[in-house]
C-alpha cells in the first residue's frame, strides 16, 4: 500500500505538540483528507482507533493510519485540573484505594496481585518490543520497594517513551489487500467523569469499563466466554484483577483467584507492566497485539487457535474506558 492511498492520519498523544498529525503526514509523504490529534490520557490510543473506525464506517475515508507516540516526561502523567485528588495527584494513590477496597471486600491478597506482575513479565520476556523482558518471581515482587500499602514497585507500570501504529482499512479495501484480515467487531466506550471524586464514591469495580464492555459485547454479538485472548489495562497489578471482573470473565470478587488459574490468555505482549506505559501509544499497542494474535503473527507468544480478542483501556482511575473486540470472522 502506498502512502498516497491513506485517507486519514490520526495521532494519539498526551503531548501538546502543535499540528502533530499533519506533521506526521508530511514526514511520511501522506496527503490525508483528515489529520487530527486525539488526547484522552491513558486511553487516547483506543479513542483514536474509534475515531478511525468512525471515519471509515461513515464512508468519509477508506483507510486510516493511527499512530501513537509519547515521551517519558509527557504532561499526561498527572491531571493537574483534578483538585479532588488534593496532594495525592499521582495515579498510585487511586490504585492503592482500589487495591485496599478489593482486599477488604473480597480477601484479595498481595500475592495474587504479584502473580499478575509475574505473568505479564513472563509474557514480556517473549516480546522483543517490551521494555521489561526480565522474568520475576512472586518473592521478588513481594520484596520490591514498598511504595504504598499494598503496592510494591513491581506492582506498578512505568511511564516510558514509546510508539505504535496500526492501519485500519474499510472492509472492501481489506478484502482486496489483506490475506487474513482481522475485523473490529465490537466497540464500547464510556466517560463518567474527569475527576476522581465520582469514582471515589464507588470503588467496587470500574463503572465505565462495565458499561463499555456490555456495549462492545452487544455490538460484536459475543459474550465473555467467547474471548480467547485479551489485552487488559494493567497500569497496576490490581487493575488487571478488577478487569477480569468488569469484563465478566469471573464474578465480582473472584478476580484474585482467576489469576491463579489463568483461564483466558491475558496481556500476551507483556501488558503495561511488561512493556511500559507510553500513554498515547498504549491502546494502539494493545490493538496491534490482539491483531497479531488473531492473524497468527505473534511469534513465540502465539496463543493457538484464537479467534476472538478484546482490548480493555482505561484513563485516570477508570473515569473513562474503551473496550474493543476484534475477530477473524
Amino acid at each position: 500500500m502506498s502512502p498516497t492511498e491513506i485517507d486519514a492520519v490520526i495521532f494519539s498523544s498526551c503531548s501538546s505538540d502543535q499540528y502533530s498529525a499533519s506533521i506526521i503526514a508530511e514526514m511520511l509523504g501522506i496527503k490525508p483528507k483528515i489529520a487530527q490529534r486525539i488526547d484522552n490520557l491513558c486511553n487516547s490510543g483506543t479513542t483514536a482507533v474509534i475515531s478511525g473506525y468512525g471515519l471509515i464506517a461513515s464512508g468519509l475515508c477508506k483507510s486510516a493510519l493511527i499512530v501513537g507516540a509519547e515521551s517519558r516526561n509527557s504532561p499526561g502523567r498527572t491531571l493537574g485540573w483534578d483538585v479532588t485528588r488534593g496532594s495525592f495527584a499521582l495515579p498510585i494513590y487511586w490504585a492503592t484505594m482500589y487495591a485496599r477496597n478489593h482486599m477488604r471486600t473480597y480477601g484479595t491478597t498481595e500475592e495474587q496481585m504479584a502473580m499478575v506482575a509475574v505473568k505479564n513479565r513472563k509474557n514480556a520476556s517473549k516480546n522483543p518490543n517490551a521494555l521489561y523482558r526480565k522474568r520475576i518471581t512472586v518473592d521478588e515482587v513481594m520484596a520490591s520497594k514498598r511504595i504504598t500499602y499494598p503496592l510494591k514497585l513491581l506492582d506498578c507500570s512505568s511511564l516510558c517513551t514509546g510508539a505504535s501504529a496500526i492501519l485500519l482499512l474499510s472492509e472492501v479495501m481489506s478484502s482486496r489487500r489483506v490475506e487474513n484480515p482481522v475485523y473490529v467487531t465490537g466497540i464500547g466506550a464510556q466517560t463518567n467523569s474527569a475527576s476522581l471524586s465520582k469514582v471515589m464514591s464507588d470503588m467496587n469495580g470500574t463503572g465505565t469499563a462495565k458499561i463499555a464492555a456490555k456495549d462492545a459485547y452487544d455490538m460484536a454479538k459475543k459474550t465473555p466466554k467467547d474471548i480467547d485472548v485479551a489485552e487488559l489495562h494493567d497500569a497496576f497489578s490490581i487493575m488487571e484483577i478488577m478487569a477480569y471482573e468488569d469484563l465478566g470473565f469471573v464474578d465480582r470478587g473472584m478476580g484474585g483467584r482467576f489469576v491463579e488459574k489463568g483461564m483466558v490468555a491475558t496481556n500476551t505482549r507483556g501488558g503495561i507492566l511488561g512493556c511500559g506505559h507510553p500513554l498515547g501509544a498504549t491502546g494502539i499497542s494493545q490493538v496491534a497485539e490482539i491483531t497479531a494474535q488473531l492473524s497468527g503473527d505473534a511469534g513465540r507468544r502465539q496463543v493457538k487457535g484464537c479467534k476472538t480478542g478484546l482490548v480493555h483501556n482505561l484513563s485516570a482511575g477508570g473515569t473513562s474506558a474503551t473496550i474493543i473486540i476484534l475477530g477473524v470472522d
Binding site: 492503592t96 485496599r100 464514591s201
Partner: peptide
C-alpha cells in the same frame, strides 16, 4: 473516612 491506606513515597 470511606477508604484509607499508607503511603511510603
Amino acid at each position: 473516612l470511606l477508604e484509607f491506606s499508607t503511603s511510603f513515597i
